[in-house]
Computed example of a mutant assay.
Amino acid sequence: MPEYDAVLFDNDGILVEPTDRAVLRGAISETYAEFGVDPTSEEVEELMGVTLDTLEGIAAEHGLDPAEFWHRRDMNASEAQCELIRDGGKPLYADVPTLSELSADLGVVSNNQHRTIEHILEFYDLGGLFETHYGREPTLEGIDRKKPSAYYIERALTDLDTRNVLYVGDSGVDVLAAAEAGLDCAFVRRPHREGYELPATPAYEIESLEDLHAILRGDGGAFRPDMEPAT
């Protein structure tokens, strides 16, 4: 009997390589320009991993409607990433094909835009592999619903009709969101996460998606980290 009924995956840094931050900065600068704002480098950076309070502060400073401004920011960021994917700048990881051999239902839950996730699944012909997939909406509510909130994870669990699920991610917010949903998390220490410290201890720490085969068989003891939660 498999250890888990289903596995949910983060997208960036797990299925495809992370987006070059310069591409996102360019999309953000383009958004400011559309609203007649010449931003400082700090204002561009503030819209990278934005909070609702930060966004509303920027919008108030420049007399902008925060919902309209954010929608354009997210649409521009999504289009820039889709173009990057088409140009080969955001490839799949080499271990992704092994997921087709897993004996569990699969899904995707990402902090990236839902539109971007759909493009990735279509472009790489992965749609048939996953039972469900969620990215965030380009709305103010979508900002608050991104991980470490478990909002989209909970929606995926409803779709999968099970809570015996493993979440696979490459960041601290993935570990925290899994914990909020009451799920085990497998942290993948990709090369870009060398030396990266986690805010909590995941159930497993792996180096490749191929290691999931052993975990789903119930042989994941070798991947359980021997460390204390970061403070």
Results as ranks from 00 to 15, higher is better:
Glu42Gln: 06
Glu42Asp: 14
Glu42Cys: 10
Glu42Lys: 10
Glu42Ser: 15
Glu42Trp: 10
Glu43Thr: 08
Glu43Tyr: 01
Glu43Asn: 05
Glu43Arg: 02
Glu43Ala: 05
Val44Tyr: 05
Val44Leu: 14
Val44Glu: 09
Val44Ser: 11
Val44Gly: 07
Val44Arg: 11
Val44Ile: 13
Val44Asp: 03
Glu45His: 09
Glu45Lys: 13
Glu45Met: 11
Glu45Ser: 04
Glu45Cys: 05
Glu45Thr: 10
Glu45Val: 09
Glu45Gly: 08
Glu45Ile: 14
Glu46Ala: 13
Glu46Asn: 10
Glu46Val: 12
Glu46Met: 09
Glu46Leu: 12
Leu47Asp: 00
Leu47Trp: 04
Leu47Glu: 03
Leu47Tyr: 00
Leu47Ser: 03
Leu47Ile: 03
Leu47Arg: 00
Leu47Gly: 02
Leu47Thr: 04
Met48Tyr: 06
Met48Phe: 09
Met48Lys: 09
Met48Ala: 12
Met48Arg: 07
Met48His: 12
Gly49His: 11
Gly49Cys: 10
Gly49Leu: 14
Gly49Ser: 12
Val50Trp: 00
Val50Gln: 02
Val50His: 03
Val50Tyr: 10
Val50Glu: 05
Val50Leu: 11
Val50Ala: 15
Thr51Cys: 10
Thr51Trp: 04
Thr51Val: 13
Leu52Glu: 11
Leu52Ser: 14
Asp53Val: 15
Asp53Ile: 12
Asp53Phe: 07
Asp53Lys: 13
Asp53Ala: 14
Asp53Pro: 06
Thr54Met: 11
Thr54Asn: 13
Thr54Gly: 03
Leu55Glu: 01
Leu55Phe: 03
Leu55Gln: 01
Leu55Val: 07
Leu55Gly: 06
Leu55Thr: 06
Glu56Cys: 07
Glu56Ala: 09
Glu56Trp: 07
Glu56Arg: 15
Gly57Asp: 13
Gly57Val: 09
Ile58His: 09
Ile58Pro: 08
Ile58Val: 15
Ile58Leu: 15
Ala59Asp: 02
Ala59Lys: 00
Ala59Met: 02
Ala59Ile: 04
Ala59Cys: 04
Ala59Glu: 01
Ala59Gln: 01
Ala59Gly: 06
Ala60Glu: 12
Ala60Asp: 14
Ala60Thr: 05
Ala60Met: 14
Ala60Gln: 14
Ala60Val: 08
Glu61Thr: 08
Glu61Ile: 01
Glu61Phe: 05
Glu61Val: 02
Glu61Tyr: 02
Glu61Trp: 07
Glu61Gln: 12
Glu61Leu: 12
His62Phe: 12
His62Tyr: 15
His62Cys: 04
Gly63Arg: 10
Gly63Ile: 15
Gly63Met: 14
Gly63Ser: 05
Gly63Leu: 10
Gly63Cys: 13
Leu64Lys: 02
Leu64Phe: 08
Leu64Ser: 07
Leu64Arg: 06
Leu64Pro: 05
Leu64Ala: 09
Asp65Leu: 08
Asp65Gln: 08
Asp65Met: 11
Asp65Gly: 06
Asp65Ala: 12
Asp65Val: 06
Pro66Asn: 06
Pro66Leu: 03
Pro66Lys: 00
Ala67Thr: 03
Ala67Tyr: 06
Ala67Met: 03
Ala67Asp: 01
Ala67Arg: 04
Ala67Lys: 04
Ala67Gln: 07
Glu68Asn: 01
Glu68Trp: 02
Glu68Ala: 06
Phe69Met: 05
Phe69Asn: 02
Trp70Leu: 08
Trp70Gln: 09
Trp70Glu: 07
Trp70Asn: 10
His71Cys: 11
His71Phe: 07
His71Ser: 14
